[in-house]
Design a protein around this nucleic acid. Sequence first.
DNA 1: TGCCAGATTCGAAGCGCTTCGACAAAGTCT
DNA 2: AGACTTTGTCGAAGCGCTTCGAATCTGGCA
Lengths: 343, 343
Amino acid sequence: MPPRMIDVAKRADVALSTVSYALNGTRPVSASTRRRIMRAMEELGYRPNALARGLASKRTRILALLFPTPERGLGVTEMEFVTGAADAAREHGYHLMLAPSELRDIHELEHLTGQGLIDGALVMEVRLDDERVDLLGQAGLPFSMIGRTSDPGTISYADIDFEQTTRDAIAHLMELGHRCVGFLNHSPSALSVGYGPTVRAAEGFRRAASDAGIAHIERPCGDNAAAGKAAFHELRASSPELTALVVMNERAVIGVMNALDEISWRVPDDFSIVSIVSSTRVTEMMRPQLTTLEPPSTELGRLGVQILLDQLERPHDEPLPPTQKLLPCRLVVGASSGPPPAR
Amino acid sequence: MPPRMIDVAKRADVALSTVSYALNGTRPVSASTRRRIMRAMEELGYRPNALARGLASKRTRILALLFPTPERGLGVTEMEFVTGAADAAREHGYHLMLAPSELRDIHELEHLTGQGLIDGALVMEVRLDDERVDLLGQAGLPFSMIGRTSDPGTISYADIDFEQTTRDAIAHLMELGHRCVGFLNHSPSALSVGYGPTVRAAEGFRRAASDAGIAHIERPCGDNAAAGKAAFHELRASSPELTALVVMNERAVIGVMNALDEISWRVPDDFSIVSIVSSTRVTEMMRPQLTTLEPPSTELGRLGVQILLDQLERPHDEPLPPTQKLLPCRLVVGASSGPPPAR
DNA sequence: TGCCAGATTCGAAGCGCTTCGACAAAGTCT
DNA sequence: AGACTTTGTCGAAGCGCTTCGAATCTGGCA
């Protein structure tokens, strides 16, 4: 029912193939012919059929976004990856297809790549050792990552600069006068499965604190308020000299604040908290509003797509150096960080 | 490079078309032939090419999810729509494609539908009067909505039951003893563009309060803490008898709590707050944890897809009654609602 | 004026699959 | 036993586009 290329060709009085050349710029077409063709297209309201195009050319202009759905759902940050990626894709004339790949279900992934539906993939929630990445590599499908494996090799990625982020968090607290800072990480299970951010933030924090020459304590913590509360009490018991906490765990931080309430400590007068890698959309909901190092989530999503497209659109024979980028988080000072108490 | 249907056919020693019939069940195939074919497929690791299939059959098994990105980004609830929809699609063997359609950009939508890429669409963030819906109708593309227009007619949808939700919120507060309850809505602009939830919650609240025979005040409020704070002070000035607030505005509610702090009112001892249509993922972050009517977001996403698929997979000549479903929110009692103060 | 390189354009062969009409083989009914 | 379904299978015609080799048409130059 919709007009086809042959209809355009007839109306412009040229061969079908000429229309194709005019449309894609595959071969030179004289200015006058091109004009006639364009006009015919407009008049007919022609839209190339993506399927036919894909079948014939082996390029679909569809990208897959691999996002596993972890135990307790995705947050604001992940949503921003998605919208950023979708936007960037659209701007470049690509479509973004959602592939809810459970980590276990490698079969799904094979199914997806085998269908010839997608040109490339963007992998989210990458672990240090990620079988999806291996599989994509084997499948020969171009892809890039938001996050990175322990040894990305020549795989392109865009990730948060955790080294810098933890350094910034500590710098902020040191400027305020703190000299003993703790770090509350994601859950032990995130650490044990080798979830990238968890491991890297821990390492970054360790190094940053030791470079800065300050005392620090570090531990994982379950993703809920109760665990956060317990963790705080334990930390205080074992390290009473602690005056501030860097937290990369939005759910646990609530528990920490509740624990502070319990012992009638005020934030930031008696204790400071800096959240890292959490969106202001979330920290603004807390009272007092948390100081945070906000991740450039939308940017990461966009960048992930751009990196992937660079790869896809490069002539196939060029050596193409992988693009690997680390983006810093942005410090947003809230009301949860201040000078340490003069105890 | 990957095996094609003809390869399977040769290996099983049947005609190409027989393989197709065996694969799709389009025509009967004898058990023995079917077995041979299946074995050949396995041995070759055959995967049907989605593009070719789509081109020939006019059915792509791809659905589009139309989600506009409003001013200040999407929240947890929207993310859950997406994951719910993506999951449901996958379970039914469909793909979900993200179509970040700005409301203004009807052109994008035409582009999408014109490409023959998608079988149907799921529309999010529906307004009472939504041009996307009109356009999809004209385009003759099957679709369903998460949300609904003012007059959905025969269009299928899944939406929150705002009538019930506001009634439940009021019932909860009345049980606690409140007799004068206010309602803080979304922003005036949401109201004026006719964003469905905003309008329907307001109506629902009005009716529920009046049915319950209690006093109530109702007003929109900007989506930020400052506006929330100002709104509360104004409400208190004009209606000092107010003892509780129902709020459908996650960002403004923070401002309300700050305002309460300012006048040294405690929640819930001096004033009660019930959040509606906000995820516990969010209300758990507040202190005190907000009582909320949590929307069944994931369910809505799933349901939206199911409804759409029912339509798609029904034989084309049947009359098919539209499926229109309203889901209630679930009351999660937090620490923000209690008996009114004995003033 | 005649011949050739270069610039355009054409026709046809697929891309990998679905689907339709036809046909052979195997019952079914009277 | 002959005419007629039914069941299972085959071959061929597309689906709407890209792409390749070849044909056509310029103008330039001898």
